Simulated scan of single mutants.
Amino acid sequence: MDTALDLRDFGGVDAYLAKCPSRTVLDVLANKWAVLVVPMLGGGPLRFGVLRRKLDGITQKSLTQTLRNLERDGLVTRTAFPTIPPRVEYELTSLGRSAITLLEGMRVWAEQHVPEIVNARSAYAQRAEAQEA
Rank of each mutant, 00 (worst) to 15 (best):
E71Y: 02
A4M: 06
E71D: 06
E91D: 12
E71C: 03
R53Y: 01
S122W: 11
V37E: 03
G11S: 07
V108P: 07
G96M: 05
T77N: 06
R23Q: 05
V76P: 01
E89V: 15
N69P: 01
P45E: 09
R87D: 12
S62C: 13
W109D: 12
C20Y: 00
D73L: 08
A18Y: 00
G105R: 07
Y16K: 04
S122L: 14
M106V: 13
T79P: 00
G11D: 06
K61I: 15
V13L: 11
G49M: 05
M1D: 11
L51G: 02
R72H: 09
A34V: 13
V28F: 07
V76I: 08
T64P: 04
W33D: 10
D9V: 08
L51R: 01
G44P: 02
A120S: 10
L102D: 00
M106A: 12
S98G: 08
Q126F: 07
R78Y: 03
L95C: 08
Q60I: 13
K19S: 00
Y124S: 15
T64W: 14
R8T: 12
G96L: 07
T59N: 14
R121H: 12
R68A: 06
E91Q: 14
E111K: 11
K19C: 00
D9P: 03
L41E: 02
D6E: 06
V35Q: 11
R97T: 13
L51H: 01
M1I: 15
L17S: 00
S22T: 00
V13N: 09
L55A: 00
T83M: 07
L75V: 03
L55E: 01
V50C: 04
M106E: 12
T79V: 10
A18N: 00
D14E: 09
S94L: 14
Y124L: 15
W33H: 14
E89D: 14
M1S: 13
D6M: 04
V25N: 04
H113V: 12
P39W: 02
V35T: 09
A123Q: 14
L26P: 03
F48T: 03
F81T: 10
P45V: 06
L7Y: 07
F48A: 03
I58N: 04
L26I: 15
F81W: 11
F10P: 04
R97G: 12
Y16L: 03
E111H: 10
G96W: 05
A125K: 15
